[in-house]
């Protein structure tokens, strides 16, 4: 079980990191979501123990799995949920202002903008 979750985390993290390095903004967002889910899984694995669900009434003498990591992971999932919505809307805003989701186009726009600022300042000097 520990090996399985370690492998899953590794695969999720790897795929997420790979996507993060892509030029498409949507892929970057998906990469972030995958990486944060890898972290959630890691959090679950931090208290990996076999046992009954920790809900009353409990049977006598039976081991109970750790509820705290699950509560933490639930909180982390909620946060990741909010963040992915925020990132999506940011990507949409970037798209409407640049009409592109390709990082190269966007950084080109940035370079153009910076050059215009600098030339204005040189003209002022």
């Amino acid at each position: 079980m520990i090996l399985v979750s370690a492998l899953t985390i590794a695969v999720l993290f790897g795929v997420g990191s790979y996507l993060l390095l892509q030029r498409d903004l949507i892929r970057v967002v998906v990469g972030i979501i995958l990486v944060s889910n890898a972290a959630n899984l890691f959090l679950i694995s931090a208290g990996l123990s076999r046992g009954q669900a920790p809900i009353y009434p409990l049977e006598e003498g039976v081991e109970v799995s750790d509820p705290l990591v699950q509560a933490m992971t639930l909180t982390a999932i909620v946060i990741a949920f909010g963040i992915s919505a925020l990132l999506m809307s940011l990507v949409y805003r970037v798209y409407t202002s640049h009409l592109s989701l390709n990082l190269e186009d966007i950084s080109e726009a940035e370079v153009r903008e910076e050059e215009s600022i600098e030339s204005r300042e040189v003209a002022e000097d």
């Binding site: 909010g82 919505a85 999506m88 809307s89 949409y92 409407t96």
Partner: peptide
């Protein structure tokens, strides 16, 4: 509320 709001925003977009 938050989820439906976000869905609505993206759907309109």
């Amino acid at each position: 509320g938050f989820a439906v709001g976000a869905i609505d925003l993206l759907a309109r977009a």
